[in-house]
Amino acid sequence: MFKKNMAPRRTQHVGAGPSTEQSYIYKVVLLGSTAVGKSSIAFRYVKNDFRESVPTMGCSFFTQLVCLETATIKLEIWDTAGQEKYHSVCHLYYREANAALLVYDIARKGTFARAKLWLRELEKEFLPDELVIVLVGNKTDLAAEREVTFEEAEEFAKSKSLIYMETSAKSNHQVTEVFMAIAHALLKQEQQKEPALRPQPWKKSRVDLQEPSNQTKKCCVN
């Protein structure tokens, strides 16, 4: 079963490529506590650089093209703010996502607990196969201060069938790999889908946003 507003953005052809290979657009969202490194991970992946960043306001949006042998994937990355005051608008950012990164700081136990809470929230919103979820333990450069062991997180990830990886945005450890893992998992998911269930390719990528979506409640609009 698909949710009504889930389907349209899932698979679409991005322009007319020279080859016959498939093109897809996927929405990827980064979630987690304040200062676990969500923006740094996004920044490392998109710009391959690191800088001490300041807390994100609302969310930041990036796009990145991933060219695989069988397909070209455009990732739309939504980097959300971890602060509490934005929690009320967060569902806006992860709604209709295809993949989520649950980021925690390996040197702060509390952020791991928070990542579990995020997972519970996502489970309420999505069906089990709808969303590719990666549990990301960031800041492996702070291994000396580690509070969450690799085994503990891995076991948890296994029990919830999540992908688990540890990264360091600062020292450029495994960041690209996380996104590649997401890309592969999304493709795999795509191929496993029954062809009949596959939604029709859309001509333009933005169309669905202009259509009235019947699930939105406008509580904060003037």
């Binding site: 923006s39 996004a42 920044f43 998109v46 710009k47 960043s53 300041v54 807390p55 994100t56 306001m57 609302g58 969310c59 930041s60 949006f61 990036f62 980097d79 703010a81 934005y86 608008v89 904060c220």
Partner: peptide
């Protein structure tokens, strides 16, 4: 400085 990267969308 975070607005320098990407596009921000904030309430």
């Amino acid at each position: 400085s975070s607005f320098r990267e990407g596009e921000a969308w904030t309430p």
